[in-house]
C-alpha cells in the first residue's frame, strides 16, 4: 500500500531542541536546524517530503509545538484555516 502523504508544521519559537521528534520519526523527515530560536535552542524542522503524517513526532514532543496534516483521499477539499495556521506555525512562512 502506498504511504499516505503528510506534513507537519512546527511552532519553532516554543521548540526546546530536545530532538525527541527527530528520533521518533520513522521516515527521518525531521532534523534540527542549524539556526537557533529566540530562546537559544536549535529547533526541529521538516526536511524531507516523505512525511506520512503518522503523528509520532507530535506525540513525543514535550512542547506540543507540532501540527500534523495528512492527505485524505476521500475528501475533495477541506477549508483549512490557512491564515491561522500560517500565523501560528511559524515554520510555514519561514524560508
Amino acid at each position: 500500500m502506498a504511504k499516505l502523504h503528510g506534513h507537519v508544521t512546527i511552532n519553532i519559537e516554543n521548540c526546546k531542541g530536545c530532538e525527541l521528534c527527530t528520533d521518533a520519526c520513522p521516515q527521518n523527515s525531521l532534523n534540527m536546524s542549524k539556526n537557533i530560536n529566540k530562546k537559544g535552542y536549535h529547533y526541529a524542522i521538516l526536511v524531507e517530503e516523505n512525511c506520512t503524517g503518522c503523528t509520532n513526532c507530535a506525540l513525543v514532543c514535550p512542547e506540543a509545538v507540532m501540527t500534523v496534516y495528512r492527505e485524505n483521499k476521500n475528501r475533495i477539499i477541506k477549508p483549512a484555516p490557512m491564515a491561522s495556521i500560517d500565523s501560528k506555525n511559524i515554520s510555514v512562512s519561514i524560508s
Binding site: G6, L46, E48, G53, V68, I77, P79
Partner: peptide, 22 residues
Amino acid sequence: MSKSIQSVQCEHLDKMDIVWDR
C-alpha cells in the same frame, strides 16, 4: 534570517486533514 537546512513547504495543506494539533 538565513537557513542552512531548508525546511520543506507544503503547497496543498488546505487539501489535507489536521490529524494532530495542540
